[in-house]
Design a protein around this nucleic acid. Structure first.
Lengths: 153, 153
DNA sequence: GCAATTTATATCGCACGCAATCAAATCGCA
DNA sequence: TGCGATTTGATTGCGTGCGATATAAATTGC
C-alpha cells in the first residue's frame, strides 16, 4: 500500500504550501528592490533583463526569454520600454532577419556602476548569511528545474 | 575591517541571484498549476484565495490581503471575478459598513472536493521528498519574514 | 525551384500586482 | 455632541505575464 504523504481528502493550510512561500517571497523581494531600483528608473523584471545583458551583451529576445523563462509577449514591450529609456537598442540581425538583437547602450553599460551596491543591500535585507542564501538558492533552482521537467515529461 | 561577502564592484551572474531563483520558481509553479486549475475555472492567485477561505470562511478583504500580502487594488477585482463565478459572496458588514465580508457559496465549498487531489500532484511535480519540501518551505518563509521586517525597520 | 513547414518576434486580450488617490464609515477626543 | 483623524475598500493607471494568434523570414522537402 503506497504512502500518501498528503492525505488526498485534506486541504492543507495556506501556511503549509511551499508554492505560497515562494509566491509571497517573490513579491517581498520585489517590494525590497523597489526603493533601490526607482532611482535607476528600472522595475524589478527590467533589472533582471539588465543583469542578463551586463553578464552577456548582444543577446536575442529568445535567448533572454530562455534565461528568464519569459515569453516574447512579455519581453517585447518590456524591452521597448528599456529602449525608450535609452538603456539598450533593438535591431534585426542582418544574417537572420527573424531575430532581434538586444544591445546595451552607453547609458545601459554606465548604469551597471550605479547598480553595484544593490546586491549587498539585498543581502543585508535578507537577514541570512551568504552561505545560507547560497544553499537556499541552489535548492530553489533544483526545485525550479524539477517543476520545468515535470511539464515536458 | 568588515567583510564584504559580495564585492561592491562586481555584479554577480543572474544564476547566482536567490531573488531570481525565487522569481523563476514562482512562475514555474504557476505553469504547473495551470492545467490542474483550468478545469476548476481558477487562476493560481484565485486558488490561493480559495485555500485561505477553505481554511477560514467569512473573512474581510483586509484579512485576506494580510494573509496573502496583497493590496485591495489586487484583491477587489479578483474577488469580483470569483463572485461572478459563483464561488463566493461579498457583502458589507452591517456592524461596520467599511468592511466587506467574503463568504464561500455552496459551489465554493463544493469546489474543495475537486481541489483535494492537487497538493499531491504538485508534490509529485516537485520531484522532492516531503521532508525536503517542508524544510525548504520553512527556510523560504523565514526569508520572507526577514524581507518584510527589513522594510518596516 | 517552390510550396510547406518551422522559427523568431510581435500583437491582442485578459488577469494579476501595486502606488496613488478617493469616498465612506468609524473612531476619538475635546 | 461635533468634527478632524483614521480605517477600509474601491478606482485608476501602469507594468508585467501568458495564451492564442499573426506575420515575416528562414529552412525543408520534393
Amino acid at each position: 500500500m503506497a504512502e500518501t504523504p498528503v492525505p488526498p481528502d485534506v486541504m492543507p493550510s495556506l501556511d503549509d504550501f511551499l508554492c505560497f512561500a515562494i509566491y509571497a517571497t517573490s513579491h517581498a523581494f520585489t517590494r525590497v528592490y523597489k526603493p533601490l531600483l526607482d532611482p535607476l528608473g528600472l522595475t524589478y523584471p527590467q533589472y533582471l533583463v539588465m543583469v542578463a545583458l551586463w553578464e552577456r551583451d548582444d543577446q536575442t529576445v529568445g535567448s533572454i526569454g530562455d534565461k528568464l523563462s519569459l515569453e516574447s509577449s512579455t519581453l517585447t514591450p518590456l524591452l521597448k520600454r528599456l529602449e525608450t529609456a535609452n538603456y539598450l537598442r533593438r535591431s534585426r540581425d542582418p544574417d537572420d532577419e527573424r531575430q532581434v538583437r538586444v544591445q546595451l547602450s552607453d547609458a545601459g553599460r554606465a548604469l551597471r556602476e550605479r547598480a553595484n551596491a544593490i546586491p549587498n543591500c539585498i543581502l543585508a535585507a535578507s537577514g541570512m548569511s551568504l552561505g545560507q542564501l547560497q544553499r537556499l538558492q541552489s535548492e530553489t533552482m533544483a526545485l525550479c528545474r524539477a517543476l520545468q521537467a515535470s511539464r515536458t515529461g
